[in-house]
Write a protein that binds this DNA or RNA. Structure first.
Lengths: 68, 68
DNA sequence: CTTTTTTGCAAAGTTTGCTTGACATTTTTT
DNA sequence: AAAAAATGTCAAGCAAACTTTGCAAAAAAG
């Protein structure tokens, strides 16, 4: 899944590690999500969105999930 | 995690099975999420929210996840 | 240019989400 | 009251999310 995490992180000049710490996960998890290796869990997605002051839908791209 | 799924489903007079079919999952998965046995994945949460014409944050309750 | 920080990736292992099938109980319909 | 539909639950098994450790390359800082 595509996300705006890397973009938002760079805007704020944060490293993956700083973001990871802020949302209570590991650097590798952030890397994997940024790179699209796997999709964040609902709770992690929420924490990341909240950290940036945005909604989940504003951070994660669901355009490939549209069968509605 | 608490959700409004049951409430929204009843408003629309849908069974768990009908909702499950509509969002491409199984009845047991809907039951488990409604009952709080586990938390939906990000994609499933999105599909459920979209099905009801709402955002993820409007359907799922993250109030217990607030350490920010 | 050298050092330090940051990032990408991989493997092994644990936990969690989900499917399938099956059964018991509750609720709704007739 | 009887039949049918809906719901809750359980167990086995698989897949996906996540952790941990560790290494190599790229980028930033000195």
């Amino acid at each position: 899944m595509k996300t705006r995490i890397k973009e938002l992180r760079k805007e704020r000049k944060l490293s993956q590690e700083e973001l990871a710490l802020a949302v209570g996960t590991t650097r590798q998890t952030i890397t994997s999500i940024e790179v699209g290796k796997y999709t964040a869990s609902l709770v992690l997605a929420y924490k990341i969105a909240r950290f940036f002051g945005l909604t989940i839908e504003e951070v994660f791209d669901f355009s490939e999930e549209n069968e509605f």
